[in-house]
């Protein structure tokens, strides 16, 4: 692909399960494109230099700073943003745990944090607190002091584990 400067090239990507199209200049940051062209305003921009983590989205399932990617790089990729998490207007377990543990105040950093947690819990299903804090070190939250976030992530990890073990147990034909 060759996208000339100052011209808008057509790109296609899968955003939260839907195929979307748009035209963009090479220099456009992915976060700007997602927000202003595709309407995914849940993606927040806090620093544009890859430190604050507010713009974190999943690129092919991998948590990435969308300010450190060009929109043209997302061509043909799968992008998931915070808008993908709730199903049928019901928040997922992580979102619910964030609310229960008062893991957000202004909510600006939260979208990015949730997306990091999504990938992290797939990679590390039974984290300890130090691992959760290590994962969160890629995000800046100015409101909460991180306490509620850490608790919410640990609780969801625990719930998913016990849910899975229950499910495994019930799937076991010997377990009657």
């Amino acid at each position: 692909m060759h996208a000339p400067a100052e011209q808008r090239s057509e790109i296609e990507l899968e955003l939260n399960g839907e195929t979307r199209h748009g035209r963009t200049e090479p220099r456009t940051q992915l976060c700007d494109f997602l927000r202003h062209d595709l309407g995914a305003t849940g993606v927040h921009v806090g620093c544009e230099h890859g430190v604050c983590g507010a713009c974190t989205v999943l690129v092919d399932g991998v948590a990435s700073r969308s300010c450190l990617m060009l929109a043209v790089q997302a061509d043909g990729r799968r992008i998931d943003t915070v808008e993908s998490l709730a199903r049928d207007d019901v928040m997922n377990d992580l979102q619910q745990a964030f609310s229960r543990h008062h893991a957000l105040q202004c909510g600006f950093c939260t979208s990015g944090i949730l997306m990091s947690c999504v990938e992290f819990l797939q990679r590390v299903p039974t984290p300890d607190e130090a691992q959760v804090r290590d994962m969160l070190s890629g995000h800046l939250c100015r409101c909460t002091g991180y306490t509620g976030i850490v608790r919410a992530v640990l609780e969801v990890a625990g719930q998913r584990q016990s849910g899975e073990s229950q499910q495994n147990a019930s799937e076991n034909p010997n377990d009657v």
Binding site: G42, V82, M91, F98
Partner: peptide
Amino acid sequence: EDQALLRGLG
């Protein structure tokens, strides 16, 4: 407030 903020609907 949480519902909207957690779903990216702020």
